[in-house]
Nucleic acid binder design. Structure first.
Lengths: 109, 109
DNA sequence: ACACATTACCTTGACTGTCATAGTATTATA
DNA sequence: TATAATACTATGACAGTCAAGGTAATGTGT
């Protein structure tokens, strides 16, 4: 587990991109996203719930994702998120930006 | 030139490490640091003055660097910064953290 | 001589992403 | 039957970044 000062600032700004990436492979609900990110990082990185929900809010406001409630027979409590075409574009752009940031950091650190 | 949303959040948290790295190869003054970072990044990244000075303040408070004024015959206006042994340790640790963060991001983006 | 750019330092206040904390409600487990 | 896990949400504090503003000396062009 990484967490702390360490990741919070070093991974900052990548939350939106992580979520968009996950949604590229199909709609997901919030809680599921945190679990997937934990699993996909080899159990090294835990995306905090509060951070995720604020990211989801932001993404929805920017029309990069849309949301709908799952059917009620499962308790009706799951809110699913779907990536939009704007979101797909944003993902590509963010990924490129990350590659660029990585190059810069490799020169400067 | 990268700048903007792009770098501000993606490079966030690396400023201290960039500066420590520079000071490993000898004492430098503030203005010089911004110029070196611009040059060393292949003119792609410009560390803002305000950001740098707040980083220098922070680093000095944490005893990772110390400072002294250059001699007055050059105008006496240059304030030089020197890395301490605490700072050298911090640099190593930060570099490791970056390598870790990079691995995590490569899994999640 | 005069204006302007550059060097060199510094402060303040706004903005934004992160997260601890707190709360609600349902379902599964011991 | 209590406890943990699932699942969502809101609030307020914190910290790093940076635009904007300021001061003062030196260098450059006309």
């Amino acid at each position: 587990m990484v967490q702390g000062k360490l990741s919070s600032d070093l991974l900052r700004g990548h939350t939106d991109t992580m979520i968009l990436k996950l949604l590229l492979s199909g709609d997901k609900y919030g809680y599921q996203i945190t679990k997937l990110i934990f699993a996909n990082s080899g159990e090294t990185y835990e995306l905090k719930e509060a951070t995720m929900y604020s990211s989801l809010k932001r993404l929805e406001k920017e029309k990069k994702i849309s949301s709908y409630w799952g059917d009620a027979n499962q308790g009706g409590r799951r809110k699913y998120y779907k990536i939009t075409s704007i979101g797909e574009q944003a993902y590509k752009q963010n990924k490129e930006n990350w590659e660029l940031a990585k190059l810069i950091l490799e020169q400067l650190l």
